[in-house]
């Protein structure tokens, strides 16, 4: 089975963010970067499928500046076989430009399965995967928390508001991976890190398409006003209930 995983390099969400001088970007000074959580789970899912289906290969693809090579190397160290950087100065908003570039790269790759994380934790949009599926004319199953491949078809499960949907679809297909599909993504071993240095990493210009959606401003959210400790223990409950009724008016 030939599997591709599209991954994104994102800032560590634990950071205290600052807005860039242009007022429409995150100031990257001092930030640490890593693979988006959902994308790590997608890589892990791909590696597990490859282990189950002999003769499989896993190719990881990332769009962005040369710094994404570090993220691609990490995926190679985890066990992916080959990597492709689609070189672009930055990752445009709206998903469509990126989807076009990815689709152009994936189109003739002969992939049976193309995986994405459900969303990138920085832009938090979750739109690129289904767009790529549409551009390639492939079936698409989103937000999977279970995925099994049987020959040329697959079954999956996704959690929706108030329920769980079980899905069946033919391959080739595009899937986006949600939390819960894998327990944890593996850490690159020392052996994996050494091996990754010798694995192929191709770099080519990204064929970015039109944009249509632009970020005009970024700002930090207003801080929540400091709250108060109503009291200690069960004795504080009457005062809490009173405040919820008279002050917050939510009860």
């Amino acid at each position: 089975m030939k599997i591709a995983v599209c991954i994104k390099r994102v800032p560590d969400m634990g950071a205290r963010f600052k807005i860039g001088a242009d007022g429409a970007s995150i100031d990257e000074t001092g930030l640490k970067f890593d693979m988006s959580d959902f994308d790590e789970w997608a890589v892990e899912a791909a590696l597990q499928l490859a282990e189950k289906h002999a003769g499989s290969t896993v190719t990881v693809i990332s769009l962005g500046p040369d710094s994404v090579q570090e993220t691609l190397r990490k995926a190679l160290a985890m066990g992916a076989d080959a990597a492709v950087q689609l070189k672009a100065e930055s990752v445009p908003a709206g998903g469509f430009a990126v989807a076009q570039a990815l689709a152009a790269e994936l189109k003739d790759g002969g992939y049976d399965l193309i995986l994405f994380g459900r969303l990138a934790v920085d832009s938090a949009a979750g739109i690129t995967g289904p767009m790529v599926a549409e551009l390639l004319g492939l079936p698409c199953a989103t937000a999977l928390c279970k995925l099994d491949v049987q020959g040329t078809s697959a079954t999956g499960e996704r959690q929706i508001e108030g329920g769980v949907e079980q899905l069946a679809f033919p391959l080739p297909a595009v899937c986006t991976i949600d939390q819960g599909l894998v327990v944890q993504a593996r850490y690159p071993s020392l052996k994996g890190i050494m091996a990754a240095k010798k694995k192929p990493l191709a770099s080519k210009p990204a064929a970015l398409g039109g944009v249509g959606v632009t970020i005009t401003k970024m700002e930090l959210p207003a801080e929540r006003a400091a709250g108060r400790i109503v009291g200690e223990g069960a004795d504080a409950v009457p005062e809490l209930v009173r405040l919820l009724q008279t002050e917050a008016k939510v009860l």
Binding site: F17, A93, G212
Partner: peptide, 13 residues
């Protein structure tokens, strides 16, 4: 975005 730590304004054209 970014887990609610940044609020982006986007324009759709």
């Amino acid at each position: 975005m970014a887990t609610g730590k940044v609020i982006a304004t986007l324009a759709a054209s």
